[in-house]
Design a binder for these strands. Sequence first.
DNA 1: AGCTCTTCCTGAAAGC
DNA 2: TGCTTTCAGGAAGAGC
Length: 288
Amino acid sequence: MPELPEVETVVRGLQATLPGKRIVDVRLGKTDFIEDPSALERELPGRRVLNVRRYGKFIVLSFDASAGSDYSGLLIHLGMTGQIVVCPTNAPVRPHTHVFMGLDDGREFRYTDIRRFGSMQLLPDGPNGGGFETLGTDPLEATEREFRTQISGRRARIKALLLDQRALRGMGNIYTDESLWRARIHPTRIAADLSDKELRKLYQAVQWILNGAIRLRGSSVSDYVDSEGQRGEFQLRHRVYQRKGKKCFRCGTAIERMIVAGRSSYFCPRCQRAPRGRARKKKTGTRR
DNA sequence: AGCTCTTCCTGAAAGC
DNA sequence: TGCTTTCAGGAAGAGC
């Protein structure tokens, strides 16, 4: 599942190959994940790629200006099973490949997505567009102070908050669980209840985990491969994710699984203490 | 504000 | 063996 480290790895691969290349043709398979398929076919041929960037879990390809075009970029989200590979035109086509863009060096940009949870849309010219305003801070670019701003005071469970792209952009299920384990924080803790010390540990854990995952080119749990078709290796370093029943690397206690924020959540019940018996349903007269 | 549930989609794995 | 069910989980929307 592509999260920040996987998307970052793909983007770095694309940065090494795409800038300067011109798109010569666009061919599409299934298009239900593309906002405006005919616009892609119409606008992209002839355009030169200027650069490739990551924004949270989004990939942005920027193009040179073109007379008569209102679009300057292509926004791509890999969803759950999206893959981008740049390969020779005669390379075997993997099943579920739905976007082909021929390049002027004789190679081909291919987008493959088994479940089509991904998305693709053209970005209009100008600074806005793409809905980036709703995205929060990049956890790797954030200072500890900025990180705290997104977390402290919130009444949501910490796991839900780490997954919320409006607070921090780029975290997904794997890296929230791994970060919470490292910081010894239970996924159902209320963010506002975390101590200063815990917030600092969480900030450091998030940075450590994300940087470590990028160094190993992401986690290949099922489908993920980078732009050269290579699997990542961070899955070998997972400490809790999908380790239900296995021993905690720190204390040997069996890892547990529960649903938090609608997601499978793995944690060590000993290292990550559950919050105190929830003072629920208090009949608060809280106005505001 | 924040929770749960549903939808999208396919394939692997588990259950009967 | 062969069918059905469950799970995977990014994001958006409904409803509470």
